[in-house]
Structures are given as C-alpha cells and as structure tokens.
Amino acid sequence: MIILLFLIFLGLTILAILADGEELAFIPLLGVFVCLIAAIVLCIGVKDGAVIDEKIAMYKKENTKIENQMDVLVSQYMKFETDTYGELKNESSITLVSLYPDLKSDELVKKQIEVYESNNKEIREMKEKKINLKVLKWWLYFGK
C-alpha cells in the first residue's frame, strides 16, 4: 500500500515537474517523502518479524525441558508420598508442583516456574507480534 502510494506520488511529482515546473510539484513531492518515511518505519517492523518463529520454537523447547525436569522432581516426590498424592498422576507437572507444599517451597522449583511463566509470557507476546506483523506487511506491500 505504502509502496504503491510512493510510486503514485513519485509519478505525480515527475508529471508536475514536466508539465508546469517545480511550483506544482511540491505537494506530490511531500507525499513522496511521507511515504518514504512510512515505508522505512514499516520495514523496520517487518524486519523484526523475520525470526519470530525461531524464537517461539526456542522458548517452547526450553519450556518442554523445564516440564521434563519438573516431571522428574514430581515423580521422585510422589514415590515418597504415594499414599497422600497417589491419585493425582494424570495432572501436568507444573500443576502438581503447585499442589505439593514441599516442592512449591523449593528455591530451584520456584526459579524454574518463574522461567516457565516468563517464557510463556514471551511466547504470547511474540504470537501477538506475529499477528500484528500481517497488518504491517499489508500496509507496506499488500503482503500476508
């Protein structure tokens, strides 16, 4: 869209210079500069989205690793507490950690849960950025 407007204003500027001189060319020339600035801003936004899928995959991989570590901790803990917590085996490890007071108070577990939650927040923000990227691409070059 912006590139198309840039080309239209550029063409109008050239026509105005050829037809009447430089006085009439000022208005379309102003449009050329506005479109150029807008295109640069949009290009910066689109460039940031080039690696978004790889970043999301990295955070998901890290979360999977944390979940696996939590599974080990929970399963070891459940060996000692089978009579109390035996019926909770189908829950996710992150949920089970919140149910076990002894595990919840462990500093390593707290840190892993904080990292897990931080990663999930980053993933959500990047997915939102990816959605917004479609709008930037449309404004720049009618892209998807």
Results as ranks from 00 to 15, higher is better:
residue 1 M to E: 05
residue 2 I to A: 03
residue 4 L to Q: 11
residue 6 F to M: 03
residue 7 L to D: 08
residue 8 I to R: 02
residue 9 F to Q: 00
residue 13 T to I: 06
residue 13 T to M: 13
residue 14 I to T: 13
residue 15 L to A: 15
residue 17 I to V: 15
residue 18 L to E: 07
residue 18 L to V: 08
residue 19 A to N: 13
residue 19 A to V: 08
residue 19 A to M: 06
residue 21 G to C: 04
residue 21 G to P: 01
residue 28 P to D: 09
residue 28 P to I: 12
residue 29 L to T: 14
residue 31 G to W: 10
residue 31 G to D: 09
residue 31 G to I: 09
residue 33 F to I: 15
residue 33 F to N: 11
residue 34 V to Y: 04
residue 35 C to K: 02
residue 37 I to C: 05
residue 39 A to T: 02
residue 42 L to C: 04
residue 43 C to Y: 01
residue 45 G to M: 08
residue 46 V to H: 02
residue 46 V to K: 00
residue 46 V to W: 02
residue 48 D to S: 10
residue 49 G to C: 08
residue 51 V to I: 11
residue 53 D to V: 14
residue 54 E to M: 13
residue 55 K to C: 12
residue 56 I to H: 10
residue 59 Y to W: 09
residue 59 Y to C: 04
residue 59 Y to A: 04
residue 60 K to Q: 15
residue 62 E to L: 10
residue 62 E to Q: 15
residue 64 T to H: 10
residue 64 T to W: 06
residue 65 K to T: 14
residue 66 I to N: 07
residue 67 E to Y: 02
residue 67 E to H: 01
residue 68 N to D: 12
residue 69 Q to P: 06
residue 70 M to C: 11
residue 70 M to V: 09
residue 72 V to F: 02
residue 72 V to T: 08
residue 73 L to H: 03
residue 73 L to Q: 00
residue 75 S to E: 10
residue 75 S to A: 08
residue 75 S to Q: 03
residue 82 T to E: 11
residue 84 T to Y: 10
residue 84 T to E: 14
residue 85 Y to F: 15
residue 85 Y to N: 05
residue 87 E to T: 10
residue 88 L to P: 02
residue 89 K to M: 03
residue 91 E to T: 08
residue 92 S to Y: 07
residue 92 S to C: 07
residue 92 S to V: 07
residue 92 S to H: 10
residue 93 S to W: 06
residue 94 I to E: 12
residue 95 T to K: 13
residue 95 T to V: 15
residue 96 L to F: 03
residue 96 L to E: 01
residue 97 V to S: 00
residue 97 V to H: 06
residue 98 S to H: 10
residue 98 S to V: 00
residue 98 S to C: 05
residue 98 S to R: 11
residue 99 L to A: 03
residue 101 P to Y: 00
residue 102 D to R: 09
residue 102 D to E: 12
residue 104 K to C: 09
residue 105 S to D: 11
residue 106 D to C: 12
residue 107 E to D: 14
residue 108 L to N: 11
residue 109 V to R: 06
residue 112 Q to A: 09
residue 113 I to A: 13
residue 114 E to I: 12
residue 114 E to H: 13
residue 115 V to L: 14
residue 115 V to N: 09
residue 115 V to K: 14
residue 116 Y to G: 01
residue 117 E to V: 05
residue 119 N to G: 05
residue 120 N to D: 11
residue 121 K to I: 09
residue 123 I to P: 04
residue 124 R to Y: 12
residue 125 E to F: 03
residue 127 K to W: 07
residue 128 E to N: 14
residue 129 K to L: 13
residue 129 K to T: 12
residue 129 K to H: 12
residue 130 K to F: 11
residue 131 I to C: 05
residue 131 I to Q: 12
residue 133 L to Y: 02
residue 133 L to G: 08
residue 134 K to Q: 11
residue 137 K to C: 03
residue 137 K to P: 02
residue 139 W to K: 01
residue 140 L to W: 04
residue 141 Y to L: 01
residue 141 Y to G: 01
residue 141 Y to E: 00
residue 142 F to Y: 04
residue 142 F to R: 05
residue 144 K to D: 04
residue 144 K to G: 01
residue 144 K to P: 05
residue 144 K to E: 06
